[in-house]
Design a protein around this nucleic acid. Structure first.
Lengths: 223, 223, 223, 223
DNA sequence: GATGAATGAGGATTCATTCAT
DNA sequence: AATGAATGAATCCTCATTCAT
């Protein structure tokens, strides 16, 4: 299928852009915004640094584009869950998907951590709003779920944060403990193991059907 | 008690060093090693950048000194636990102390995260060895504890990592979610709340007497 | 009358060229040759910088074209005067025309000043020759005029230069003193006022028979 | 006489600063602010560009310092005249001094022109205020002088501007017409000639009692 | 005739570091 | 112990220019 001149040109540019975003994501996730140099990114792509300015207005804009591309998909995952009704029992499913998304591109978890460490300095307003929304809805989901779990209302935010740290932390930090605690933590096998671990952890802290049953029984017993 | 001139001078020097380390810890924990400039650190202290070289050989050496000072105390906490026999039931106590140490100086948790994100690039051999030892002994403690908990041997490292991420993540990242999930997360009250939360979490995932009882019953019940 | 495609295309091109020259004149007159970027000029025109190269070989060539277009008309004015016989009493008329030409396009006076300030670095040989001719003939005109004026032969060049500075300086510099000395100095009213001022100035410094007589009379009358 | 360490250090620095200011004045007056590169200035001084930052915060600050140093003396000349009573007959004396100051450092006149051409973009508030004051007081002086001159109140600002352009224009632009109108226009002899010319010009356009009388007499009778 | 992509050269500025004082 | 001066290397970014399309 023939391409018009314009399309071909655009496509070539788009390819470069994609490669730049890949390289930038990698670099930014290693050393953060200030620790990353455009020259290094350019070198990774195989172009000269000034060429980056054909595609991005400046370093900040490139970083913003990296963040958008990185977290857009996650936000969509969230959207889907939100639309399906925010049912509490879906929270573990969400965690599962999140883990999968993050492990596919572990850089992104690191990116998120860098942002958080630097105080969300560069996270643009839109993105920040989305993330807030994400946590907000996660929280509402937990609050509206049947109270088969042992947590008070005040503790729920802490639990959500903790689960988030467990999931994102594994992806972002485990590599640093490669050899110490986990071997090759981002291999498919290891990720699957971690997914099962998170499920189990969630069941333990939140309760599952069996658990619920046990609790139910206990409750009925009060009758 | 009078001080000689030399002593006073030395003491003044020591004071400067301490102030440099404070400023450096603050800066490094914000933007990491590469993102931090010696000039900024010097400005915080109220001296000029070249003066730093009177106290530290270079930027790397200063960073190393910051890491040493930051994690020495933590390693000592660990030492104490290790010497006292690595009893499993003490793990939560350790987590508690760790949380307290980290929240007293939240920068240090951020420092650790930066290091981990950058792949422990600057963590010197000694420090790395200590940390490895820390996790190693934590792991042995968990392994040698009575199996009143529901985890397999393979899952224990993941659990240790998860608990670490929960604790350090709270201190390092919660500020980024100030207002979203937690309000003023490093205030004494909030820290205490988090400490209680971690305890409870630990009891849930590891099991305590009551839990153990329940599990026991269930087991016996199959008879 | 129909135009062929080629003609129309050529005309479009000519239009673009004209718009480029306009934009370039504006920019160059603000910040000089080195201080002006092709990108800015292109942006003003609504095209991209590389397109400029379809019309001009390079930045220098564009600048040369701007100079040509800017000073061609002035040179023609001069030509006319020269042809009409270089009569001395026409010098004020020339000054008048010059002022008018300059105020219609104040950028051009600024352009000339930039050139002079930078040592005529870019003024091409042809242009320089014309300007030299301009001053040369102005000088000859003054020299060959009846000596009703109080100037020596040696002073005439200084007078010519002075008048030139008064005229061009007003157009080029007055805007900088807008509010301080003159209000809205390039408005038609202000220009007319300045034209009258220059006339009067010229009469005073050059003197004509009538003027001298009038002044004399007035003075005597006060007796 | 021995110098303390501090003094010697300061003096060396002060020397460098002075040389930087000289070089910068020269460069800025040739091509204006944007057309001048710090590297060129540094090269003229014999240091590397980053060293400039030991003495000036940035390019703008260096430029501001150049302006201050260049126009401070002129403003002082003015001050002296203002203090002595702003008598109208002193205006030519002022013009004389101004010309002398400008010709001693012709770059400064060019600097002023560049500023004016670029719309006083960089002239700091203080300087601008001074210049405004300068023109203001010149104007008041002219207004309060006995009306032996043929100008209306409305024309006085134009006259002041014209004289300014004659004086500054000679110094700034004459070099561009070296060979055409004036030979070696900044040589002492040429400057003196121009000074006499300006005096004469001023007498013609402004007139003083004596002059008027003399001219009158001469005209009336040559008796 | 227009332009997206690319680039070498340069431009302002920062940075870690040295050294004499 | 502190610092002013200096600097090579690097940082972000602009600029004039080329070229394929």
């Amino acid at each position: 299928m023939a391409m018009t001149v314009t399309e071909r040109r655009t496509e070539a540019g788009a390819q470069t852009i994609e490669r730049v975003l890949d390289a930038a994501e990698e670099r930014f996730s290693d050393e953060g915004f200030r620790g990353t140099s455009l020259r290094d990114i350019a070198r990774d792509v195989g172009i000269r640094a000034p060429s980056l300015y054909n595609h991005f207005a400046n370093k900040e804009a490139l970083y913003a584009a990296v963040l958008e591309r990185a977290f857009g998909p996650m936000l969509e995952i969230l959207e889907r869950f939100l639309e399906r009704g925010e049912a509490a029992y879906e929270t573990p499913g969400m965690a599962d998907d999140m883990l999968r998304v993050l492990t596919e591109r572990p850089n992104r978890a690191r990116l998120l951590m860098h942002e958080a460490l630097a105080g969300n300095r560069h996270m643009n307003v839109l993105l920040a709003a989305w993330i807030e929304r994400l946590f907000g809805s996660g929280l509402r989901a937990m609050r509206s779920s049947p109270d088969t779990h042992p947590w008070t209302k005040q503790e729920l935010p802490l639990l959500l944060l903790a689960m988030n740290n467990v999931i994102a932390g594994y992806v972002a930090l485990a590599p640093a403990f490669d050899g110490t605690l986990v071997r090759d933590p981002l291999s498919p096998a290891a990720v699957q193991r971690q997914a099962r671990f998170v499920s189990k952890l969630w069941r333990l802290v939140w309760g599952d059907a069996q658990n619920a049953a046990t609790l139910d029984e206990r409750r009925r017993g009060t009758t």
